[in-house]
Design a protein around this nucleic acid. Structure first.
Length: 267
DNA sequence: AATGCCTTCAACCGCGTGGAT
DNA sequence: TATCCACGCGGTTGAAGGCAT
């Protein structure tokens, strides 16, 4: 028996996507929508598996993606949500319209994690490392790791109950208007959590290191992002306007023949 | 200029989940 | 109920670019 591969991998291309491939995928989805990822590469004329196409679309081509570095507020939110949800990146990403789980996961692993360690906070338990050491349940790096996974297990149980609540809530929401309200409620809740986290952090100057980080980040995203500062409303969770997106895509890929984008978007 | 190490992030892999049959 | 299948998720990998020597 056993599970069949999601696609026949013989003769399929792997690795970085070319502009031409992006073009094909984008064109196909904008014109036809997404009904079955497995069929997308065949119909779009791509030598990729459906999974690869899905990933490319979700993480890079989607028009509602918010590009650019993370703001201080977003980083605060990520830290807070991670303390509650652990490595459940998709759940965390759900709080950030226009951000992908992959993007948040990468940002966590490459920046936030290190910074937390730098200010003496354990990125897994979200407790001061000093406190963990003094509590006696920590002897060295390796035991800390194992303890951390234990704590994570415990937090998983908590998260389960949160999920159950979420599921019930989701079933109750029917209209899009109500869904929008749900997002607002969640964001309000998140803001409360951030406040609590700030209080908890006390003397730790999170703002300082985040400012430093923001300054250094400005250059690293320059190649394929439009500046958040330039957007008319830089508030958290705001997706870039269609015009901004089209401009950013133009600047990145210099695509031709995409004049029909506006009509076809959000099919 | 050449080399090696480090960092970042796009992409892949394997597994879990849930719907359809 | 068992099986198949597509999708989604989280961990991991590797290419590319930056930086230090």
């Amino acid at each position: 028996m056993g599970r069949q591969p999601c696609c026949d991998k013989i003769g399929l291309k792997r690795g970085p996507w070319t502009i031409e491939e992006d073009h094909k995928l984008m064109n196909f989805i904008l014109n036809n929508g997404i009904h079955c990822w497995r069929m997308v590469p065949k119909l779009a004329g791509l030598l990729r598996c459906g999974k690869s196409c899905r990933l490319r679309w979700i993480n890079y081509l989607r028009p509602d993606l918010k590009r650019g570095g993370f703001t201080e507020m977003e980083e605060n939110q990520i830290i807070q949500l991670h303390s509650r949800l652990g490595n459940r990146w998709s759940k965390i990403a759900a709080h950030f319209p226009g951000r992908t789980d992959n993007e948040i996961k990468n940002h966590w692993n490459t920046r936030i994690k290190k910074r937390l360690k730098l200010i003496g906070v354990d990125p897994v338990t979200h407790k001061p490392i000093e406190q963990i050491e003094n509590s006696g349940d920590h002897k060295n790096e390796t035991t800390l790791e194992s303890n951390s996974s234990k704590v994570q297990e415990e937090s998983q149980l908590e998260v389960k109950s949160i999920d159950q609540k979420d599921n019930h809530a989701e079933k109750d929401f029917v209209s899009t208007e109500e869904k929008r309200n749900e997002v607002e409620v969640t964001l309000d809740e998140t803001n409360d959590l951030i406040n609590n986290y700030d209080i908890w952090c006390g003397s730790m100057d999170l703002g300082l290191w985040m400012n430093q980080e923001t300054n250094t980040n400005n250059t690293s995203y320059s190649s394929n992002s439009f500046s958040l500062e330039n957007s008319s409303n830089p508030s958290m969770g705001e997706s870039p306007s269609l015009q901004q997106w089209v401009e950013s895509v133009d600047s990145i890929l210099s695509w031709d023949g995409f004049n029909h984008l506006e009509q076809d978007l959000f099919f």
